[in-house]
Write a protein that binds this DNA or RNA. Sequence first.
DNA 1: CCCATGACCACAA
DNA 2: ATTGTGGCCATGG
Length: 113
Amino acid sequence: MSEKADKNDFFELVFAVVAQIPEGKVTSYGAIANFLKDKRAARMVGWAMNASHKQKRAIPAHRVVNQQGLLTGKMHFETPTAMQERLQAEGVVVINDQIQNFENVFWQPKIEA
DNA sequence: CCCATGACCACAA
DNA sequence: ATTGTGGCCATGG
């Protein structure tokens, strides 16, 4: 089988991690990038999220925020408020696009088969 | 083909 | 502590 798409692996890896985020929890781009040994490539993670809409897999991109716990990419969602509303629907307190008690809801990326 | 932008993060001054 | 720049890789014009 010739799996060669390296960049595709990056996508799958990011999607895999994001898909494993438990409800009521969030993670950061840098955390994922760091997990991928490319902490400088945090932008690529965000870019992968942009492609998450194309993925058939349910990618809870709303659970992915920046290191500050700020909903930077809310504008890329269906609606600018979809991200915040969705997070709150999962029990995450978000005020002014800022996740409250971010440390408590922070989830460390890890591959759980 | 070259330039500019992007859901970011880390480091230096 | 804050501000500014670089770096990362890919996509778009």
